[in-house]
Computed example of a mutant assay.
Amino acid sequence: MIVTNGRTGQQAAKIRNAGLDRLVDGWVVSEAAGHKKPAPEIFHAAAAVAGLPLGDAWVIGDSPHADIAGAAACGLPSVWISAGRLWTAPGHRPTHVAHDAAGALNRFTAKKWPATP
């Protein structure tokens, strides 16, 4: 499930153009949900669309504010995609760090997490 901020049409086009629509069961866009990340409501909406409990979710994202703070607000584990950046956000930290999305997914499926920053 993808949770993204933005306009519904624009974000859906990005998801399709990137080929992500073939890899996920769906997506929730802030414009349609009426809430933006990091608000817990958008993550609850995604769980409802997926038909799964939110407590079973985890968040992968590159934004300390929208993604990692959103995960923290929901009590969910998170993976920050650092792209080589150092973590500088105050108040919360990701559960795990990966260089890129592929690395995050590979580590998740292999259950080989790097140390928390």
Rank of each mutant, 00 (worst) to 15 (best):
A98Q: 04
K37F: 07
A69C: 12
G9K: 15
K112M: 03
P117V: 04
G61H: 08
A83N: 11
S30H: 06
L105Y: 07
T8W: 11
A13M: 13
K112C: 00
G9A: 14
D100W: 04
L86M: 05
M1L: 12
T116K: 14
V24F: 15
L20P: 06
A110C: 02
A73K: 14
P64K: 14
A73L: 07
K37T: 13
T4L: 07
A89T: 09
A89S: 09
A101D: 01
V29M: 01
P53V: 08
G19W: 06
P64S: 13
A110E: 00
T8R: 14
T4Q: 10
V97D: 13
T116F: 11
T116Y: 11
N17I: 02
F43K: 05
H44K: 06
N17F: 03
T109D: 01
K36E: 15
R16Y: 10
A66C: 07
P40K: 00
T4K: 08
A46Y: 06
A115C: 03
Q11A: 10
G103V: 06
A110D: 04
T4S: 14
H35E: 03
P114N: 10
K112V: 07
A48H: 05
V49K: 03
V24A: 06
N5Y: 06
P40W: 00
V59F: 04
A13E: 15
I2M: 03
R107N: 14
H99C: 13
A89Q: 10
R107G: 15
A46H: 11
H65R: 14
D21I: 05
I2C: 08
W113I: 01
A13K: 10
A48V: 06
A101P: 00
G6W: 02
G26I: 01
Q10R: 09
A101L: 12
K36H: 08
G6V: 11
I68G: 13
T88C: 13
T88Q: 15
A57L: 02
G19P: 03
H35M: 00
A101K: 01
P114V: 06
T4R: 10
A110K: 00
A50C: 05
A101E: 03
G55L: 06
G26L: 00
H92K: 11
P117E: 05
W87N: 08
V49I: 05
T116P: 07
A32P: 12
A98K: 03
H92Q: 08
D56G: 09
W58M: 10
A57D: 05
K37Q: 07
I42E: 01
